[in-house]
Design a protein around this nucleic acid. Sequence first.
DNA 1: AGGCAAACATACTACTCGGTATGTTGTCAA
DNA 2: TTGACAACATACCGAGTAGTATGTTTGCCT
Lengths: 220, 220
Amino acid sequence: MLATAKIAKPKRYEEILVAAAECFQKQGFSATSIDTVARHLGATKGRIYHYFPSKVDLFNAVRDRAMELAFDGIREGYDAKLSPVERLHLMTLGHVKCMMLHHSYMQVLLDGLQMQRFGATTEFQREAMERHLHERNTFETWYREVIELGVAEGTMAVRSMSVTLQSFLVALNGPVFWYRPREGDGEEKLNAIAEEVVVFALKGLGIDAVPPISTISRGA
Amino acid sequence: MLATAKIAKPKRYEEILVAAAECFQKQGFSATSIDTVARHLGATKGRIYHYFPSKVDLFNAVRDRAMELAFDGIREGYDAKLSPVERLHLMTLGHVKCMMLHHSYMQVLLDGLQMQRFGATTEFQREAMERHLHERNTFETWYREVIELGVAEGTMAVRSMSVTLQSFLVALNGPVFWYRPREGDGEEKLNAIAEEVVVFALKGLGIDAVPPISTISRGA
DNA sequence: AGGCAAACATACTACTCGGTATGTTGTCAA
DNA sequence: TTGACAACATACCGAGTAGTATGTTTGCCT
């Protein structure tokens, strides 16, 4: 989380990453060829293989970047010195907006999670996979902590934590599946949709009246 | 919905369909070769191409079957002569159990929905795709109808129908993403998990106290 | 018995894709 | 000017893959 101290990657690297994310999102991993990504860049394979040793490594790089973005989306709420309900509200709002703003990356991320599908992966790939599952677990734990505080406090109601948490997360990830970014959508429109998703998810945890966030002072 | 009057398919056909569903689920469409499905059957390509004209047709057949199963899961609740809340409860319970029981088929179904990913599909494939989107739309409409009745009645609360409906459906589809079928799981264990998902989703619609279903008489 | 079609398996073709090896161009330091 | 190296493009190889064409077995009807 802090070991890689934001080493700025070269511009070309970032370009390839974005193009790869868009291709993987549209067509999935297997259906996306290196040449496809290259054409989408207006380049050839040479460029890509100059920056990434293999297709799997390119995919992992996209996945890692997506995970960073996801953590960035919920970190502020998680770190805030506020009540559990308010923290959860900030986290979920950041979460959903992240899903909508970085649509390509996030879809690749969720696809990658299902990628036990690889089945017979190399040992090196298995290492990347386990690292990814560990990050996923940390992500879930952040939510679990805050929700458990709310339950102890009596402001949230949960019967089975594991099942409810999964349902909760799926609802927050939902926009990746059904939301299509529209150019005409301004930030307010996006916020309105995100807020609707948040309200649904929070009500699922028994949080009825969602307090306005405008008056909340930034914590920590 | 009633045009194809349940023409019993040959046994071999069903075997191939099941094997294909399992392969498509594990590896996705592109990564699954016809030979993969054939090996999984202990056969060769000849068998598969004897029953299905192409790989895409095989995939569509799996998708269609999955859609039938999904409709079967919610039909009883939709047709029941009961209150909107009770109907919705039956629908969601059937929905979630269907997701868990027919895990492979349902994952292929949701994958297939995202398959604008095909991009350049043939015109014939586009026809199958549009038929699929139409069925998907009908499926959503069944839910929308019942929820609108509940809102009119005052027993459900929804701010934005479109966004809430999507969040609701994603939560119900959730088990496809996070539930792994365990051999040890008996029917009661499965029911318990399903009920937790249902409670979360219904609370999201503002339905707090979920009535017991055991006393409900079968309708229609 | 014999013939005939369904139900496959086998062999083959044209094509794609991941990866590598090699060629080419620009840039910068000595 | 001349290496030298980064930053690519191009050509190529081996391993699959969808689909086809053709062989082979099996059950059934007469």
